[in-house]
Design a protein around this nucleic acid. Structure first.
Length: 224
DNA sequence: TAGACGATAGCCT
DNA sequence: GGCTATCGTCTAA
């Protein structure tokens, strides 16, 4: 028996973080994004949420930053106002979601590398794996519980984008606007002793900078 | 306009 | 832990 996907009304949705949040130093923003809530509103009106547990910072004077060599068509969003999304394709396969930081004209961003599914994890599950034949054999509650425990749905920037059905067409989405397809909202505070600060993943330039942050206790980290 | 390579993830051993 | 699919973007010519 198939049950309908739970629909969260807009009344229940948390308010987006103010644009001023993204005007703090990029390293501070990356750190403070830990614990925040990523809210995704799908075209059919259903909503899924996740808790951010891993981020990285990219600054204008950082050789690993896509905008290091100046403005191009690809990185245009990073030069725009803070609080927008910068989404790029990586390795020809995976999309990566960034929150643009710093004042307009200054190209910096925080990469969101991992989330823990919160509400409507089964929707992320479907996005990631496609329609599952065995789905009808389980209760929605059971599907939701296994989906919430599935680390593939959020641990890694490419997996995260696939689960949330986010691609390059969402580049420049306003993350401080409640009507956007997705935005960032307040969440549970992550204590300082819970945060691990380390070097970034998968880059060769600026590889020694400790600009990656993750929640130590989370099981949804892309790489320890 | 060709050539190089990248902010990865999945599969195989 | 190693290998590789796969393609948009940038750079140099």
């Amino acid at each position: 028996m198939r049950m309908t996907t739970p629909i969260l009304s807009s009344v229940e949705l948390p308010a987006p973080l103010p644009r001023s949040f993204y005007l703090q130093q990029t390293l501070i923003v990356a750190r403070r994004l830990l614990g925040k809530t990523l809210v995704r509103r799908f075209p059919d009106g259903t909503v899924a949420t996740g808790r951010i547990v891993e981020t990285e910072a990219y600054t204008a004077d950082d050789p690993a930053c896509h905008a290091f060599r100046g403005k191009t068509e690809r990185n245009r969003a990073m030069f725009g106002p803070p609080g927008h999304a910068y989404i790029h394709l990586n390795y020809g396969l995976h999309f990566c979601l960034n929150a643009v930081t710093a004042a307009e004209g200054v190209a910096e961003a925080a990469l969101i590398r991992a989330i823990e599914p919160l509400q409507n994890a089964s929707r992320l599950f479907r996005n990631y794996y496609g329609e599952v034949a065995a789905e009808d054999a389980f209760t929605p509650e059971y599907l939701e519980s296994i989906a919430r425990a599935d680390k593939r749905l959020g641990a890694g920037p490419g997996r995260l984008s696939k689960s949330l059905a986010i691609d390059r067409s969402f580049d420049d989405t306003d993350l401080a606007e409640a009507d956007s397809a997705f935005f960032l909202a307040e969440g549970a505070e992550v204590r300082e002793e819970e945060v691990v600060t380390t070097t970034r993943i998968g880059i060769t330039k600026g590889a020694d900078l400790p600009w990656r942050f993750y929640v130590q206790s989370s099981g949804f980290i892309s790489r320890r």
